[in-house]
C-alpha cells in the first residue's frame, strides 16, 4: 500500500529532512516495499489547524500534528505542553513524552482514538532561548518587555516575570524585532539563522526555558492503520525510535550550528545567568499547581494530578539516564525495548 503523508511544513524542516527522509525509506525497505509513503508537504493538503480533524477524516493517512492547535479535542495529551518548561533536555523530553503518552496516559490514547487517529510518538525541539536587542540576564530585565512566546507554560512565565505576552507568527518575528513591536522572541537559537534574527537582534540568553514537546511525529488515520497487516504495523512501530531521535538531533545540530556562528553576526551569547535560572526553578515549583488547576477547570481532565506526576517521573528517569552518559544508540534501543516493544501491534490503535 502507498500511504499519503501530509505535513504543513516545508521540505527543509527537521521533521521531514531528518525524520521522514529516514523513516519512509526505512519502512519501505523493512516491509519489502509493501508499505510506502507519498509525502505532500508545505500545507498543500491541510493547514496546521485543520490537520487533526482532516487526518481523522482520512484526507491523509498519516501526518505530523501540533497538539497546541486542538486543546478541546486532546485535553490530556496537550498537558505536556503546559509542562514544557520542566526540562531543556530535548532527547529526554522526546523519550518521556512518547513513553508517557503511549504507556502511562490511557485518556490520551482514548482521545486520539475518539478523533479516529493513532498516536505513535513525539519529537522535541532544541531548547528555547531569549533573543533580543537588549541583554537579558535577570528576571528584572524582562519587566515591561513585550515577549513573543509559543504559548502554554511560556505565557504564564512571561506574565509572572512582569512582561507582556505577544503572539505573532514565526514569519513575522524578524520585522517585529526590527520595528520594536516585540522586545524579545522566545525561540531556539536556531532561529537566529533560519529566520535571520541575527541581523536584527544583538543578544541571546540561554537558560533552562524548556523545549517544544507537543509534536506527534507521525500520527495515523485509524482506518488506514487498521487496514495494514499486523506485521507491517510492527515494522512501522519498530522504525520509530530511530526516527524520533534523528529528528530531535537534527533540531539540536541546527541549533549548535547557529550558535557557533553568533560571533560572526555580532550577537552576544549569555549562558545560563544564575538569577534567571533560579527564577525558572522557582516558577516551575509554583506552576505545577496552576497547571493542575487549569487542567481540571479549563480542560476538564479527571485525575490531572496523577498524570502530571507520572510525566514528571518519566521525564526524570530519562534525564537521569542521559545525564549518566547513555549513548545515542543505547537511547534508541532503550526506547525500542522499553516503549515500542511493549505495544501490541495486533491490538494497538484498532
Amino acid at each position: 500500500v502507498e500511504l499519503t503523508a501530509a505535513s504543513w511544513v516545508g521540505p527543509s524542516h527537521p521533521t521531514i529532512r531528518a525524520g521522514y527522509n529516514f523513516y519512509f525509506p526505512a519502512v519501505a525497505e523493512a516491509t519489502g516495499g509493501a508499505v510506502t509513503f507519498k509525502l505532500i508537504s508545505g500545507g498543500a493538503l491541510m493547514s496546521g489547524k485543520e490537520t487533526l480533524t482532516g487526518l481523522g477524516d482520512g484526507i491523509a493517512d498519516a501526518s505530523v500534528l501540533a497538539l497546541t492547535y486542538n486543546p478541546a479535542q486532546l485535553p490530556a495529551s496537550q498537558l505536556v505542553s503546559e509542562l514544557a518548561m520542566l526540562s531543556g533536555e530535548s532527547l529526554a523530553v522526546a523519550a518521556a513524552v512518547t513513553e508517557f503518552t503511549l504507556l502511562e496516559c490511557a485518556p490520551c490514547i482514548a482521545e486520539f482514538s475518539e478523533q479516529n487517529v493513532v498516536y505513535t510518538g513525539s519529537y522535541a525541539t532544541a531548547p528555547y532561548a531569549l533573543i533580543s536587542k537588549d541583554k537579558i540576564e535577570s528576571p528584572a530585565d524582562l519587566e515591561g518587555k513585550r515577549v513573543r512566546t509559543p504559548g502554554g507554560a511560556w505565557d504564564r512565565w512571561v506574565a509572572e516575570s512582569g512582561g507582556t505576552v505577544v503572539h505573532t507568527s514565526s514569519s513575522e518575528m524578524y520585522e517585529a524585532i526590527d520595528k520594536g513591536i516585540i522586545d524579545v522572541a522566545m525561540q531556539p537559537g536556531a532561529a537566529l539563522k533560519s529566520f535571520s534574527l541575527w541581523d536584527v537582534a544583538d543578544h541571546i540568553t540561554l537558560a533552562d526555558l524548556g523545549v517544544y514537546n507537543s509534536g506527534p511525529f507521525l500520527a495515523f488515520n485509524k482506518d488506514a492503520w487498521s487496514e495494514l497487516s499486523v506485521e507491517n504495523r510492527r515494522v512501522l512501530l519498530d522504525q520509530l525510535p530511530e526516527a524520533l531521535v534523528a529528528t530531535t538531533e537534527a533540531y539540536l545540530s541546527m541549533n549548535d550550528e547557529a550558535l557557533s556562528e553568533t560571533a560572526d553576526h555580532g550577537v552576544t551569547v549569555t549562558e545560563k545567568p544564575e538569577s534567571l535560572q533560579t527564577w525558572v526553578t522557582e516558577f516551575n515549583d509554583q506552576d505545577l499547581s496552576a497547571v493542575i488547576e487549569k487542567a481540571e477547570s479549563v480542560y476538564g481532565i479527571d485525575g490531572a494530578e496523577a498524570l502530571v506526576q507520572a510525566y514528571s517521573e518519566t521525564l526524570q528517569k530519562w534525564t537521569d539516564r542521559l545525564d549518566s552518559g547513555m549513548s545515542r544508540d543505547d537511547l534508541v534501543s532503550a526506547m525500542k525495548t522499553e516503549i515500542f516493544d511493549r505495544i501490541d501491534a495486533a491490538a494497538y490503535g484498532i
Binding site: 486543546p71 478541546a72 479535542q73 505565557d155 505576552v165 503572539h167 479549563v298
Partner: peptide, 9 residues
C-alpha cells in the same frame, strides 16, 4: 458534540 473551543489568551 465535543463542545469545540480554542485557547488563545
Amino acid at each position: 458534540g465535543e463542545g469545540e473551543y480554542i485557547v488563545g489568551m
